[in-house]
Amino acid sequence: MSKDEHREGIGGMINPRRYGIERVAYLLMRLSGLGLLAYFIGHIYETSNILRGQVGWNEFMEMISTTEGHIIMSIVIAMCVFHTVNGVRVMLGHGGVGVGKPTRPDYPYDPASQNYRHKIGIYSAMVLAAVAMMYGLAVMFGE
């Protein structure tokens, strides 16, 4: 690791091009978390329109039931599935599941925790997110 690498700050921390798929998962976990929190706040506001009565609710539904609205919703579905599946992987890892047995650190010092089991977990989260997104699009545009 060079000295310059330490000076990169947040940019260096979130750079997905280094340290393998685990860093990509770390970045996607945070981005999906922030995206879902933003959606959750919007959803709470959106559903409060029911208090405006039938006319107010229908007006709001008309405003969000657009192609753009459906695309945003499908991205939310993908974020939700990725965050859930990867979150379960992280929880299992924190609980010591699938991280391997502690051994003497020998060259080339491959971390036992960054093994194929967790890599499969990350790729599975991505694939399931894509499948859920396609299903969501089919449901929303199929009507």
Binding site: F40, I41, I44, Y45, T47, S48, I50, L51
Partner: peptide, 13 residues
């Protein structure tokens, strides 16, 4: 704040 706002919708409806 968010819980209070969301609860208001649920309870009133």
């Amino acid at each position: 704040g968010l819980i209070a706002y969301g609860s208001r919708t649920i309870i009133m409806t």
